[in-house]
């Protein structure tokens, strides 16, 4: 099942959640799962191997953007038709991964982004506000308004796998992908998803204070 799809999971010290995430994906029938171990010092790599995931290991910690870039390079090299990226902290539901895959198979766009917009607006106003500023910033850079530029759940078709360029190595990759997609004339579609926020995933997620750093890095890369 889903032989032409590669699931890419960037992971840095995720021993507490990675096993459960992989178990869920396997149960749902996703065969090709790649964990990009971004220089973890815990048991992440071991647990991923035990769960029959392909493991690409960075020798040192680079950042989530670097891990996604490695995963996409792997998908390109092995000619996967689709790639879906998701977080290792367990915040993405399997049903949403399936929704993204369905959209990719329906050729609705080159890039499908799982948007947490309505959930953030209702339950996490601070995160929603910071996200809104990020969205406006990305809009200024790319000319494309995306309601959740920072979502980690994304689907790419073959064209996007081939054409996307990620030069940044940290969380700014989320925005960079949109800017790069616009330059490469790739189409983007958003579909609503429901993120599962636990104390663990909240702790592991992006820090709000990182927003300014991301903006400076993106500006430096773009100009």
């Amino acid at each position: 099942m889903n032989e032409d799809l590669l699931i890419i999971i960037p992971a840095f010290n995720e021993e507490k959640s990675i096993g459960q995430v992989l178990e869920g994906l396997k149960t749902a029938g996703f065969a090709n799962i790649t964990v990009v171990d971004d220089g973890s010092s815990d048991q992440t790599k071991k647990i991923a191997i035990e769960n029959n995931a392909k493991v690409l290991a960075h020798p040192v910690n680079i950042g989530v953007g670097g891990a996604i870039s490695t995963g996409i390079a792997f998908a390109k090299r092995h000619s996967y038709k689709y790639a879906i990226t998701l977080d290792a902290d367990g915040q993405h539901a399997i049903k949403d991964v399936e929704k993204i895959l369905q959209e990719l198979k329906n050729y609705s766009a080159d890039i499908i982004i799982g948007s947490r917009l309505s959930q953030l607006r209702k339950k996490y106003p601070l995160k929603f506000t910071v996200n809104l500023f990020s969205n406006l910033f990305v809009f200024l850079l790319s000319g494309k308004y995306i309601s959740d530029t920072q979502s980690g759940l994304r689907g790419l078709n073959r064209k996007a796998i081939e054409k996307l360029e990620i030069n940044t190595s940290g969380h700014e990759y989320c925005s960079e992908i949109i800017v790069s997609a616009q330059k490469q004339k790739l189409t983007i579609k958003e579909i609503p998803i429901e993120a599962i926020y636990t104390d663990y995933s909240k702790r592991k997620g992006q820090k709000l204070s990182n927003a300014l750093n991301i903006m400076v890095k993106l500006l430096t890369h773009e100009f």
Binding site: V36, G39, K54, V55, L56, A57, H58, P59, V60, I62, G63, G65, G66, S69, T70, A73, F74, R77, N167, T168, S169, K217, T220, H221
Partner: peptide
């Protein structure tokens, strides 16, 4: 210095990707 840091980060990312793919 900031530009130099970003350039080094980019090079490090490329090297890490190459090593990860080679090992695989």
């Amino acid at each position: 210095l900031y530009i130099q840091k970003l350039t080094l980060e980019k090079k490090l990312k490329e090297i890490a990707t190459k090593i990860a793919l080679l090992e695989k």
